[in-house]
């Protein structure tokens, strides 16, 4: 448990999101958002209250740098709130090992796809619904959500391999 590792990831994610991804023009209203990955990496045993506090601070940092006034914060809070439920839903047969960090190397690809995919879907749906805030634009919201989830998921996998070191075989 190394706090500096988490602080480094926090700063990295916020800067990448605010200075790079929020400026990227991809067409079709697609917007890549990778910072929910930071919440996924936090240990399983962490309390929800603490998780939501971190989500609030992180969202505010991103909002302050991209003129969205609380939009990212709101969506990230929804992710933090639903993380324990989704973790329970896809828990392995004998529960989570409290010592490990939940990532691809420790939990496997299929777990990561289900858990992180669902978290991203919640985040993006919340984000775009709040941004549009109009029931008549539901088709546009759906289009933006689905395409962006696809884009964000691919980006997140890349960032995941960049940030997390593959553990050596003999340690396991």
């Amino acid at each position: 448990m190394n706090p500096f590792k988490y602080i480094g990831r926090f700063v990295f994610m916020v800067l990448i999101q605010a200075l790079f991804l929020n400026q990227l023009e991809t067409g079709l209203g697609v917007q890549g958002m990778i910072y929910p990955l930071f919440l996924l990496f936090l240990p399983v045993e962490i309390s929800v209250i603490f998780l939501m506090t971190i989500a609030f601070v992180m969202g505010m940092c991103i909002d302050a740098m991209s003129n969205t006034y609380g939009l990212h914060t709101s969506a990230l809070l929804a992710v933090a709130f639903s993380r324990p439920f989704i973790f329970d839903l896809f828990a392995p047969r004998d529960g989570y090992d409290p010592l490990i960090e939940p990532d691809i190397f420790s939990m496997g690809h299929s777990w990561f796809f289900k858990t992180y995919g669902l978290l991203l879907l919640i985040h993006h749906l919340w984000f775009f619904s709040l941004e549009m805030f109009k029931f008549s634009e539901i088709l546009l919201i759906m289009q933006k959500t689905l395409l962006s989830v696809l884009f964000s998921y691919i980006l997140s996998i890349l960032v995941h391999y960049l940030l997390v070191k593959r553990p050596k075989k003999n340690e396991i």
């Binding site: 506090t53 989500a55 609030f56 909002d63 302050a64 740098m65 003129n67 609380g70 914060t73 709101s74």
Partner: peptide, 23 residues
């Protein structure tokens, strides 16, 4: 927390009250 975030979002769109939250 959600209330704080949403209050920020909906009040800032129409009228900016504080500056520390913006660019």
């Amino acid at each position: 927390l959600q209330g704080i975030a949403l209050a920020f979002y909906f009040t800032f769109i129409s009228f900016p009250r504080a500056q520390w939250m913006t660019t």
